[in-house]
Design a protein around this nucleic acid. Sequence first.
DNA 1: CTTAACGTTGACGTAAAGGTTAAGTTGTAC
DNA 2: GTACAACTTAACCTTTACGTCAACGTTAAG
Lengths: 143, 143
Amino acid sequence: MTGLKIDDVAKQSGLTKRTIRYYEQIGLLASPPRSEGGIRLYSQAHVEMLNKIVSAKEVMGFSLTELQEFIQLSETLEEQRSDYRQFKGTDQQREKLEKVTETIEEQLKLIAQKKKSIVRVEQDLTALYERAKNALHTFKENK
Amino acid sequence: MTGLKIDDVAKQSGLTKRTIRYYEQIGLLASPPRSEGGIRLYSQAHVEMLNKIVSAKEVMGFSLTELQEFIQLSETLEEQRSDYRQFKGTDQQREKLEKVTETIEEQLKLIAQKKKSIVRVEQDLTALYERAKNALHTFKENK
DNA sequence: CTTAACGTTGACGTAAAGGTTAAGTTGTAC
DNA sequence: GTACAACTTAACCTTTACGTCAACGTTAAG
């Protein structure tokens, strides 16, 4: 029984056990090997993957479906990689690759936008903060 | 019948009519005045508010409940503002204010975190992009 | 003054992302 | 070898954030 059990992973990732299994179920997280008796035995790589998922979800607001797509892209690239070395690329694969790069390009643009928007929200919140601080100040003066 | 009707607001904000009514229903958007017959007549301020809501939701991943809280904070501050001028602040109000500033502080920290995370995700995606580009390149060479 | 386009309020439906509970299995510790 | 904690699947439940009718009222146009 070597490897992390689901509860360890839960603690390290901050997700619940249910969520981890759910992510595996919908194909977001690779299925870890099992013990004889069927208990999931995770590696550190799984934890890192989960961290990336959480990050992408929280930060980018990606839905799990969108995340799946990116993971598939990544896997497609892994697959292709070996094929290319063998000079086996087909036209179909090339088309797929072109779509992939387009999709990523779009997402990178979106990220650029979000960076700007996040600053806007930050400014709004900072303004709110200043007002609150000021109010508190006024308070102390009249005490 | 002066003022924007719901469909105009929908077009300007990119939200559906249903969503706009829903936001009003749960207290996210201030109820606009109505015509004699009961038709909602919006002002430009409503549109701006909606834009802020969309921004905060999309960009920060705030849930509508969280957004409600911030709007309440904002309103609390408005209320207090007049009170302070009249030197009427109570201890209760001060406590409330202190909570408000704390909450905002936490959120600002969260925003800082998100800024970092967004960069991480961007790097991951860029790496994916480079790999895709490379693969495409290899393709052309073997054509 | 009627008609068409748009508005209104319910009420029910639904997809996503898990939570919860039940009923049974496995692993470890004594 | 027997407890006991932690694991498993499966099934159903819940919440959020709206979508989608239905049934009816209002307004602007001709």
